[in-house]
Simulated assay, not measured.
Amino acid sequence: MMRVYEAPPAWKPLPKEVASSKYTGEKNSSVIHETVGRALSTWEHAESALIKLYQLLCETKSLAACRAYGTAESVFARYLAQKYAADEFFLNRDENDLRLVVSLLKIYNDAAPYRNQIAHGMAVQPHAFGYFLCPPSYASRRRDTPYPTQQWGLGASYFYRVAEIDHCRDHFENILKARRFQF
């Protein structure tokens, strides 16, 4: 029988803040670059742990399932593969374990947009407010305008400082820690 210890603790999504004299960024971009690296590395560790879950759900010690799982190009595709494998695996097993696994997978899927913002953001200095991680100017779905105007900062969908990136990294770490199984 498989037992999942617990789902990650509740996580509060980041509030939308705009660069301003009250919400100032970092003194240089290097701290943002370093923090982005830590956050993305933590995400990849969580993804790697979830591969083991997939292997378990497929009831195989073979790496064939892991290799196939690794071809899914989006978090949503990997989430669906895990979810359907879990549904099948738990068909004649403990429903509570299924609920815990599905809960973990949902938390993983819901964290993906934050991972994508971190991975696809760029360190910029809007006006005199310090450096932030923001969407690039060409990211039409994350920006109102590609032009750096006086209102440029108002058009970005996120402005992350080190604290906000670390907040996401902590959540990614909790996803990794939650995925502990006994057999």
Rank of each mutant, 00 (worst) to 15 (best):
G121K: 00
S21K: 05
S157G: 08
L53D: 01
A128N: 13
R78L: 06
S157K: 07
R141F: 09
V75E: 13
N96L: 15
V36A: 03
F172V: 00
L57A: 04
R169Y: 06
E73R: 14
N92R: 08
S48Y: 06
I165F: 00
V102Y: 06
G25E: 01
T24H: 00
V102D: 06
V75Y: 10
L63R: 11
M1L: 12
A111F: 03
A49H: 09
Y138F: 11
A112P: 04
Q82S: 08
P113K: 09
H167R: 10
E17S: 08
H171K: 11
E44G: 14
A10F: 11
L133A: 08
I51K: 05
R142I: 06
E88S: 12
L53I: 08
A10E: 15
T35A: 09
F90M: 13
Q151C: 09
V18P: 03
L56D: 07
T42P: 01
A139D: 09
D170H: 07
R143F: 04
P148H: 09
A19M: 05
C134W: 04
K61Q: 08
P136I: 05
L105F: 06
D166S: 14
L154G: 09
R161A: 02
A119V: 04
T24A: 03
A178R: 00
S157W: 10
S103Y: 05
Y138V: 05
C134S: 12
A81K: 11
A178C: 14
D94N: 15
A72Y: 15
A178N: 07
G155F: 03
G70H: 03
E59K: 15
